[in-house]
């Protein structure tokens, strides 16, 4: 029972981080119809930026904000400079471009920041809490992780559902041609979408790196797990992506805990392959028609 509780809590905590990556992938998918394979690497890069800021004597929270901000900028620049020129081409071009960016960032990071494995600080204790004599299996940092992800999700819902710019972005994603006829500058919406997605990736990097350490390929697995969660949720649905990612987090935690941690990554791939074979539209694809 104790093992089960520990595994459940860590599965949910990790699942929330995968969920934020899954949301970033869904956001890009809905706007540009491609999977951004560099999504994780961009989060790795911004986490290095955070570490750089911290190592120069600034506080964690300043580094946190700077990492998120540089994610926003990095995503926007990638869209403007790299994606825009191949946007009118077949989607495969953007996919290959994102793979190229992944390799580039993973090569650039060790050149700029050093290639060795670094520990990355958590702003709160990672030791599990105790209430009186009862041992809980959740640490303050776990609570922070879940809380930060939930807060960001709530902000995204408000942004997309309640603001004019969010409405413009949804229109541009659903039907770019009609959006242009309505006077919406679709190009700007795409730039903003890539920026926001990279901001989410930056948050994922900050939240997962204290547990998995920071090195140039540290987000590769996180990307695969987030991707699997997004696929499980049907790629179109943000809510589906979150649920899918939580399921992945839990399953992987149980696989790692009961069958051996070396099987965890393989478990992720097995789920991915199984979903793609059995239900490629995802578990939560309820009639995701694109146009009226």
């Amino acid at each position: 029972m104790r093992t089960f509780l520990i595994l459940t809590v860590s599965g949910i905590t990790n699942g929330f981080v995968y969920a934020i990556v899954a949301l970033a992938l869904v956001m890009i998918w809905r706007a540009t119809r491609v999977i951004n394979y560099a999504q994780g690497a961009m989060g790795m890069f911004t986490t290095y930026i955070a570490l750089y800021v911290i190592s120069h004597g600034f506080t964690y929270w300043l580094a946190f904000v700077i990492a998120l901000g540089s994610g926003l900028v990095l995503g926007a620049v990638v869209e403007r400079v790299l994606v825009r020129p191949v946007e009118a081409r077949p989607p495969l071009n953007v996919v290959i471009l994102s793979l190229g960016l992944l390799i580039l960032l993973e090569a650039l990071a060790p050149m700029l920041f050093g290639g060795q494995i670094r520990s990355f600080p958590a702003p709160l204790s990672r030791v599990d809490l105790k209430v009186g004599s009862t041992q809980l299996y959740i640490s303050p940092f776990d609570i922070f992780t879940v809380g930060a992800v939930l807060a960001v999700m709530a902000l995204l819902v408000v942004f997309f559902q309640r603001t004019d710019i969010g409405l413009r972005m949804r229109a541009a994603a659903f039907n770019p041609e009609v959006a242009r006829l309505l006077g919406i500058r679709v190009g700007r919406m795409l730039t903003l979408g890539w920026g926001l997605a990279a901001l989410l990736g930056a948050l994922a990097g900050l939240l997962i790196s204290p547990a998995i350490f920071l090195y140039p390929t540290n987000m590769d697995e996180v990307l695969v797990f987030g991707f699997t969660g997004a696929i499980l949720g049907g790629l179109e649905s943000p809510a589906g992506a979150v649920v899918g990612a939580l399921v992945i987090g839990l399953v992987l935690s149980y696989v790692g805990g009961y069958l051996g941690s070396e099987l965890e990554t393989m478990g992720g791939f097995l789920i991915l392959i199984a979903v793609l074979m059995v239900r490629p539209q995802g578990l939560f694809a309820f009639g995701s028609r694109r146009q009226a």
Binding site: R168, R170, E177, L181, I184, Q291, A292
Partner: peptide, 20 residues
Amino acid sequence: GRGLIGELTVDENLRLGGLW
């Protein structure tokens, strides 16, 4: 074909018209 965005509500579609 009217070019409506079927997933958005009537009000959202209308607002989009003048959003610029």
